[in-house]
Each structure stands twice: as C-alpha cells, then as structure tokens.
Design a protein around this nucleic acid. Structure first.
Lengths: 248, 248
DNA sequence: CTGCTTTCGCTACGAGTCGTAGCGTAACTG
DNA sequence: CAGTTACGCTACGACTCGTAGCGAAAGCAG
C-alpha cells in the first residue's frame, strides 16, 4: 500500500499520445506503482538516494488517505488537488511533486483497496467463485471505489500510459484470483489440467473479464445489488461448460 | 404531472441527492433526442406548444453532432460546453437552455449510436450472439463511444437522476436484443419457453449484464481486441448450460 | 560545526472553465 | 398589431489548474 518511491516522482505520465509502436516508452520506469522490494536497491541507471532532505513518508500516507476520504465524500468530479492538499495538511506543490495529476494519484489511492481480495479455497470451485464475487461486490459498494473505478477506466481510454498503470496496479494483480481458483480446482480434479500454456492464459483472461465486467456492470451501471441468489445464478452460468459442477 | 417548467429543458438534473422515490421527474420531454413528430400533437397534460418563437430543431442536431465530434477529438475531459457551442455555431446560453450540463448532453448525443445495434436472427442462437457481440465491439471501437460511455457510467454512480437517464436512454433499450434473441431461440426450439415471468426477467438481466459488462471490460479496460476467436470462446461460455448448443 | 542539496510550506499568478444575467433582436401566434 | 418565447452576444464572479518564486527545514559529507 505504501508509496516509498525511491528517487523520482511516483508516476511519470505522458499524455494521450497515440503512442506509435515505434515510440518506446519510459526507460527502466521506477515509478509505476509502489515498489515492494525488500532491499534498498539502486537499479543502476537511476541514481541512488542520498543527498538532500528526504521525502516525508508520512506525507504520502496522509495524501493517499485524504484522497480516499475525498473520493468517498465528493466523488471523482468533486475531488480537487487543492482540496486533497488541504485535507492532508500538505502544500499543493508538495502534492504535485509526487503525482503529476489526479489520475495517477487516484490510481495509487485506490489500488491498495483491491489487495484485500483473497481466494479462499473453500473446497469447491463453485463456493470459491461465489465467495470472490461477494468480496468484489462488497468492494464495489464502497463509495471510494465507486467514485474512482469507472472514472479511472474512462480516463484510461484516452491515456495509454494511464491505462497501463491502471492495469499494472489494479487489474492485472487480481488475475491471481482466477489462477489460484483454477489451480485449486485442478488439484481437486474438478478441472482438467492445463493442456496448453497459451490457451490457459487466454482462458484466464476471458474468465477474468467476464467476472469483473459483469459484476461491475451489475453494480455500477445497472445499479442492482449483488444478492446471494444472483451470485448463484451467475456462477452457474460460468460453470455451465462443466455441468457436473453446477450442482456442486 | 409536470412539476415545474412547462416549457422545460430537456433534462432536469438533480445532484446526487439520495433521490427519494417520491421525487418524480418532469418532462414529457420535447427534447431527449430529436423527436420526429409530424403533427403538432398536444398530448394533453403537457401544455401544447404554441406561443412564442419555437426552438430550432436544426440547432439540436448541430449541437448533438458537435458533441459527438468533440468527444471523438477531445475526449470526455477535453469536452467543454463553450467548445461545443462554438463548434455548433450556437450561443452558449442556447446550449444551457436545453441541457443543464455536459452529462445530460452527452447522454443524448451518444444514445442514438446504440440504436444501430440489431438482432440479426441468423438461424442459431450461437450465430446471433456472436453477431451482436461483434456489433457491440465495433461500437465500442468508435472514439465517441469510448470517450463517453465509461465517463457517463462513472458520473452515474454519483448522480441517481443521471443514472436513471442513462439506463432509460442507453442501457435498457438494448435489452431488447436479449429478449429478441431468446424469443428467436425459443421459436427454434433451442431454448425452453419461459416458465416464469419473473425469472425470465432476471435471466434477461443477468445475460445482459454479462455480455455488456464483459465486452466493455475487454475493450475499454483490458484494452484487448475482440477477435472472432475470442467471440467464439465467450459465446461458448454463455451457451455452456446448453451443451447441445455449444457446437451449433 | 559549516556547506551542499533537496524538500517543504506559503503566496501569487495567468489561463481556462463554469453557469448565469442582461440586453437587444428574431420568430411565431392570435 | 401586441404578446410571448428563443436567439446571439457580452460580461461577470467563482473556481480549478499547474507553475514559479521565495525562505525555511531536514538530511548528508567533510
């Protein structure tokens, strides 16, 4: 969750350039999202941290907390850099030194919320899926998440750099849930082991897009609640190809 | 019924108030989208249109066109009321007389794009689903749609009035596709006829959320293309509960 | 301790947008 | 004709954005 950004600003953006394939992007990219390496590390190119006054880690936490609070209270549109700075008791310039814009700030503020999701391993694929869907529904019920998620996705459609950042910080890490669930089901014998590496990856992608997209659409667009009954129906839809599991 | 202004703007918003069910809304709506009334029509309740200079229908079209163009060029964030007015060669005040804010304007500007979707009836449920998914993917590939859709959904999470408007103008009308597809499949004998009215409605909802949400997530969030192969896999997932159809 | 470096808080700024008000004019009805 | 409404135009205060400049604070090397 923490930022702990070594040398440079936590995010380096680059505005909606068509990003021609030839155009290579940021170099070693220290920034992306909060690193989680144990060691001090000075990956070469980027200079090690040494001289000058160090950045306040407390300020990072205060800013991210203030961002989540402001999101919950004011929503995406009401969120202002100046507002966040005031609430975090930090100068606006300090905020801009670390995050280039609202987009990147909110990505970091929201990303940690998604780490709460866990794959429970309840003994059956059906139970596991239903549990994860319920967790995701709870997450989407929180006002910070609701205010931020779709707005970020919307911005991501125009800013490739941001979309990559969103994927790395929020979306892709959650695919572990699908992988873990599949692995557990395979260990139980509910699913056949992966034949092909590539097709397995595609299947993970499609399952992930289906679960995430459907639940998001149900909650955030249709505005209907995720009930236990709905979860059961949806899970049955997913398990359809394996009728033997439907009754599990 | 008309609570407020008889002349009325096309949309009256109401900012993220909990929106008690009592809060009924207004307009018999001259505006929404360009009506095509041949006759004068004065459906009683709503005052007949008679006195004064009538609103320019050409201005409506010019504004909506300008909105779509600006969306495609500048995206949601770059879209400005002043900009749209200039591009449509209309005074900014004229724009505000018809749409209270960017949100409502874009809903109307984008809603018509979704009417292009049609249920083809190709002779099998699988073929029908794949065709509709392909159409939807094409729609989501357009820059106006990409720029507007998720941003509207995001705004809708905070503004119930807007969400309702989005549902009425964009989302719900497309559920006809699911209904038509189901009906055709039932006529062919591919699906059993509806036993219960209520459960049929729920099934339509869940199928719609699944298709719309998954395709949107794939295209707009994951940023991956919708290929014929992906469509086939996804359709197989949907048809799973009916193995006999999977090979259709 | 003294320098050197970087961050911090603060103030101020030009640019841009928002939504509204006021005015005179245009269009249409009876 | 008078009455009513929409239109184009200008101007306005309030707000946000992102940046620049300043002096002070907090670390490190010697």
């Amino acid at each position: 969750m923490p930022a702990a950004q070594p040398p440079t600003t936590p995010a380096d953006r680059e505005r909606l350039p068509e990003a021609a394939p030839g155009a290579l992007e940021a170099p070693a990219a220290p920034a992306g999202s909060p690193e989680a390496p144990g060691g001090p590390e000075h990956p070469e190119g980027t200079t090690t941290r040494a001289k000058g006054r160090p950045r306040s880690a407390a300020a990072d936490l205060a800013i991210l907390d203030a961002t989540r609070e402001a999101l919950a209270e004011l929503g995406w549109g009401g969120l202002t850099m100046g507002h966040v700075a005031t609430r975090a008791k930090v100068a606006k310039t300090t905020l801009y030194r670390r995050w280039p814009s609202k987009n990147e700030l909110v990505v970091d503020a929201v990303a940690s919320l998604f780490d709460e999701l866990v794959m429970p391993d309840l003994g059956s694929l059906r139970a596991d899926i239903e549990a994860v869907v319920a967790q995701f529904a709870d997450l989407l019920a929180r006002p910070e998440t609701q205010a931020a998620l779709l707005a970020l996705f919307a911005e991501g459609t125009r800013d490739r750099q941001l979309r990559r950042r969103i994927r790395e910080a929020i979306v892709d890490p959650q695919k572990r849930l699908v992988r873990q669930g599949r692995a557990a089901a395979q260990a139980r014998g509910e699913l056949a082991p992966d034949a092909d590496e590539a097709t397995a990856g595609e299947e993970i992608d499609i399952i992930f897009d289906t679960i995430a997209g459907t639940v998001e659409h149900r909650v955030l667009v249709s505005g209907e609640p995720i009930t236990a009954d709905w979860t059961r129906r949806f899970t049955s839809l997913l398990l359809g190809p394996f009728p033997s599991l439907t009754t599990g």
